[in-house]
Design a protein around this nucleic acid. Structure first.
Length: 478
RNA sequence: GGCGCAUUCGUCUAGGGGCCUAGGACGCCGCCCUCUCACGGCGGUAGCACGGGUUCGAAUCCCGUAUGCGCUACCA
């Protein structure tokens, strides 16, 4: 039997790191087993749907390199892949269940339900309120119908016994039927709920393994019961732990960047994000950290997924991204940097000399988003950093150092990094200053910052005219 | 409140009874390299939640407690 997995997000916003991790594990598992990946959009709740979310999710998955064999975009033999277009499937199943007495119409108003729920809150049968209309007499039914009350459809959950889930990550988990209550399958308006649409589609699409977040573990027995009532076989499940913020709360926007889109904007490499996320809850040998996509595919297994929640560590991601950035070839690096600048709508984009800066910045950047601050001033003459500028003005050595630099740099024959180094070092000897002290004012004068690429290379990059102009301007401002 | 899941350095993790005086990585600290920032090298810091069992022997198995998280929707 070929493995078939699905990633089934709701189009309620940007793709979150938690969602990405789920998508990734599904993808890795399927690719490892030569299986099929399905992308299904769960848009049954039109209220919460947000504009453009589907495109956004697809875009993020594309960027990460997670391709889906069957999806709303690619189509496939088990479509449609949008739940909003699968109404007949759900209706047919509900009709069958109703016919066989496995589901029933419930006429409770939301207010009645809520009141009953509050009352039953602390009793020994908290699920009782969901079963109030389970065995209505025909008189009661016609009275409710007569009142024009809309009916919702509830599943007739067994009152006794338990459902056992053999989860690939968590092992055996048992749920008492009595506490489950009668699950709502269809809303008053006839729209399917997640509890109906999700398992039904998994069955219809031949899903063999359901890999999803732990938040969905409690709904698993309901879904299993439903599928088995319909004569289907419930897929194997693997419930992944939650991803937490530093405060151990579920990761969200208030913890900073949490969506794929944000990491992309900050100049992270998709491969780095994928590698990092793969390691958030899974490990291969506990030692190896940097792995190619092919290695991840080859090594991934659900058996080695950690069931405990994991805190998302931005610092480690940044480190890993830097490690990936440093491994890039110069041309690839330049192209990726340019793409980032274009995406960011940066004034630095399209600069023909960008490539020359690569060797000067590659080992210094943790993400492309830092490029502008580090080396932007070499491409564009702009206002210096105020703090650095004050430091320059307060430096008592600055005037003589800048004067010397102007003289020396104006005199050297070859305006190369080596020649510039020799020239600047002779200033140190001349003035009896340590390189560290002599170079700081020059760096600020030339780059407008205390942090920049190598000084000799920076000056050489600017060229004699520009470098001298900046030095003279700084000198004049002292 | 009920149900469920989880619990190894600050963080991600290795560990599935003796190989553990608990390994790796990020972070942090120190030293080296050094024109700033980085990179790189070397060294260091720090952990089995607690309490009971089981066993010759427990980070590893069982029970309880605590804590955290999830679910408890006509959200997913």
């Amino acid at each position: 039997m070929t493995v078939r997995v699905r990633f089934a997000p709701s189009p309620t916003g940007f793709l979150h790191v938690g969602g990405v991790r789920t998508a990734l594990y599904n993808w890795l598992f399927a690719r490892h087993h030569g299986g099929v990946t399905v992308l299904r959009i769960e848009d049954t709740d039109t209220e919460r749907e947000t504009e453009g979310a589907i495109e956004q999710i697809q875009r993020s998955l594309d960027w990460l390199g997670l391709d889906f064999d069957e999806s709303p975009r690619t189509g496939g033999p088990n479509g449609p892949y949008l739940q909003s277009e699968r109404a007949e499937t759900y209706q047919a199943a509900v009709d069958t269940l109703l016919e066989q007495g496995l589901a029933y119409r419930c006429y409770q108003t939301p207010e009645e339900l809520e009141a009953a729920r509050t009352a039953a809150r602390h009793t020994d049968d908290p699920a009782a309120p969901t079963r109030l209309h389970r065995d209505l007499t025909s008189e009661q039914i016609s009275r409710f119908e007569g009142e024009g009350r809309p009916a919702i459809i509830r599943f007739r959950t067994p009152l006794e016994g338990e459902t056992v889930i053999e989860d690939l990550v968590r092992g055996r988990v048992a749920f008492e039927h009595r506490l489950l209550g009668d699950t709502v399958l269809m809303r008053g308006g006839g729209a399917p709920t997640y509890q109906l649409a999700n398992p039904l589609d998994d069955m219809a699409m031949g899903i063999t393994h359901v890999i999803r977040g732990e938040d969905l573990l409690p709904s698993t027995p309901r879904q299993k019961l439903l599928i088995e009532a319909l004569g289907g076989t419930f897929p194997t499940t693997a419930h992944l732990s939650m991803i937490l913020g530093p405060d151990k709360k579920r990761l969200s926007k208030r913890h900073g960047a949490a969506s794929v889109e944000e990491f992309r904007e900050q100049g992270y490499l998709p491969h780095a994000l994928v590698n990092f996320l793969a390691l958030l809850g899974w490990s291969w040998d506990g030692e190896t950290e940097i792995m190619s996509i092919d290695e991840l595919i080859e090594r991934f297994s659900l058996e080695r997924v950690n069931p405990a929640p994991a805190v998302f560590d931005h610092q480690k991601l940044a480190w890993m991204n830097g490690a990936y950035l440093r491994e890039l070839g110069a041309d690839t690096y330049a192209a990726a940097l340019e793409e980032h600048l274009v995406d960011a709508d940066s004034p630095l984009a399209g600069n023909p000399r960008l490539g020359e800066l690569v060797p000067m910045v590659q080992e210094k950047l943790g993400a492309f988003g830092e490029f502008d601050a580090l080396a932007g001033s070499l491409l564009i003459d702009r206002e210096p950093d105020p703090v650095a500028w004050e430091k320059l003005k307060a430096d008592e050595n600055a005037p003589k150092v800048l004067d010397a630099a102007i003289t020396m740099l104006g005199a050297i024959a070859q305006f190369s990094p080596d020649a510039i180094e020799g020239s600047l070092r002779s200033i140190c000897d001349l003035l009896g200053l340590k390189p560290k002290n002599a170079f700081t004012p020059i760096r600020i004068a030339v780059t407008g910052s205390t942090v920049a690429p190598g000084l000799y290379e920076s000056i050489a990059f600017l060229g004699r005219d520009e470098a001298l102009a900046r030095l003279q301007r700084a000198r004049a401002a002292l």
